[in-house]
Design a protein around this nucleic acid. Structure first.
Lengths: 308, 308
DNA sequence: GATCAATATAACTTTGGGTTATGAAGCTCG
DNA sequence: CGAGCTTCATAACCCAAAGTTATATTGATC
């Protein structure tokens, strides 16, 4: 005997509110409607659910027991509705975000931390990757947002790009590095130090090559390569090596007195950091909320950096 | 946003069974039906519930969360159905039964105990009362079954009567009473003992008067009156007083060596013990089951008594 | 790319829940 | 105890939607 869950809901409402009319009001239906629903339920059950000819409508034992189940159904339904609302407002669910390792660890992660403090019900699925693969993941909808240093012109029409920071690289070194004390650093000062290089396939590695080419460094001694940001930071802190990093990353690290940048002007990359997503905007409300948050935070960060 | 609980059930079935077709089978519906129900639910929710263009149909986060609620609904519904089945088979619910105090305490209560051992989900609401009031309770449907010593002819057409024991009274005394040892007790032996009388308004009290009148006892010394069966038993056990009780009660008490009956023949009452209920048989399956049980048990008891 | 299985769509029927209007039946109270 | 009020039941209608079968699409798989 399969019962209609809506009937059980109605029964629960009636029992809870103590009357057929009140129950109808509670459910936002008309009184005759619930009256008939109850009759139908009674027909199917084959037993009376209310004591006949009693005015303060009194449920039978069975009626009471079924109303109990109806209450469960009502609550499950309410919870489901709540879940939907949360989801539609982008207050729950998950955002799949990925980016290049150095940026993610150096800048984005702290923004994500702030976001999670504000939205504890939203899960962030973070991963790392370089532009080509992340764009394909965006296409196949296995990724919601990519945060990449990229040349906007390189991007196909399929994607939307929102710049969050202008590209700007600096030469970084440990705090207390011999060169860091100088007010001006010249080319020949640099050449004697060895270099820490990002992974060879990363955009940053190309930036490093371009930068050093630009300032005339032909031959570079590479003392360490391939590590994550924290590896780079540790090696940097424990040696006099130099490296090329986005200024934003150095800026964040400066706060923790982990590293500093040399007062030497190097060419900026033609890539800019920004969020990439599908242009068709079939993104969840949650992703949109995350996106807006990131943009807002980076706007603030950009201002701070400009002042520095 | 109010969601249809049936949609959530369907969603749960699909997610649980891993496919739309299997889900449909699980619910005993056609595949197109559930397919459309899901579309409808998705329309209302405004978000996809399944990842598009994926063959082993995979729910989204929201889909999964809603399916969880659907499962709750499904389970509540199943439990409700189970409750109905139990009720219809008379395996749950309550029976309101009442009877005269002496019979209830002396005989019926142990039958009720057996019944409850067999049907732990059925509640017995027992109460005491004398015929007139119990019959009116039957009429007003505040009582399901009355167990009464009654003259069937006295009963109006409204009621149905089912005899469970023939009326038979005896004179009872404590085990070890001086008269109990004799093989034959004569009238003059009895007259010197005082009597324990049931409450004055009880049928049994009239039986006592009639009995003693019948055997020629004119003047009776009443030493105790008005108590319940256990009071009577205690007083009886602690004195040489006599009383008149239904043989069935004495029979049950004999098993516990609490009392015995005198070997003297007294007139039987024209009342018989039986179950009374409304003739229209608008009784719950539960009450019917109880009734059948009582009749069965008393049939056995009757045989035992006849042998004794 | 052909094939197979799973899902979606179409077209139609039927159930039943929604409504308003109205009738019947308990309760309350003078 | 009957007038009056409130609450519940019925009637008549409409329409949303669940159910059906038949068929088209679409992924997955080889």
């Amino acid at each position: 005997m399969k019962l209609d869950p809506r009937h059980l809901e109605i029964l629960a409402a009636i029992v809870e509110s103590g009357g057929l009319t009140e129950g109808a009001a509670l459910l936002g239906k008309s009184q005759p409607s619930v009256s008939r629903s109850v009759s139908l339920l009674e027909d199917r059950v084959g037993e009376p659910l209310f004591l006949a000819a009693r005015r303060p409508l009194q449920p039978t034992e069975l009626g009471l027991a079924l109303a109990q189940e109806g209450k469960r159904i009502l609550e499950a339904g309410r919870h489901a509705s709540w879940l939907v609302d949360e989801h539609r407002q982008g207050l729950s669910g998950a955002v799949r975000v990925a980016g290049t390792p150095i940026f993610m660890d150096g800048v984005i992660s702290s923004v994500i931390a702030e976001f999670q403090a504000e939205h504890p019900n939203i899960r962030i699925d973070q991963s790392y990757g370089y532009p080509a693969e992340l764009l394909s993941k965006i296409s196949s909808e296995t990724l919601d947002v990519a945060i990449l240093p990229i040349r906007p012109a390189d991007l196909s029409e399929e994607y939307e790009f929102r710049q969050i920071l202008p590209g700007r690289n600096v030469i970084a070194c440990r705090v207390g590095h011999p060169l860091a004390r100088k007010t001006e650093v010249k080319l020949e000062d640099i050449t004697e130090y060895s270099w820490i290089a990002p992974p060879a396939n990363s955009p940053l590695f190309r930036d490093l090559r371009n930068t050093l080419d630009g300032i005339g460094v032909r031959e570079l001694k590479i003392s360490f390569t391939g590590g994550s940001l924290s590896a780079v930071v540790n090696v940097l802190a424990g040696s006099d090596s130099l490296t090329v990093l986005p200024f934003s990353v150095v800026f964040m690290m400066q706060r923790q007195n982990m590293m500093t940048s040399l007062p030497i002007k190097i060419g900026d990359p033609d890539r800019h950091l920004g969020c990439v997503m599908r242009r068709d905007r079939r993104m969840s409300a949650t992703s949109n909320r995350f996106l807006a948050f990131v943009e807002r935070k980076f706007e603030l960060l950009d201002r701070l950096i400009c002042k520095a």
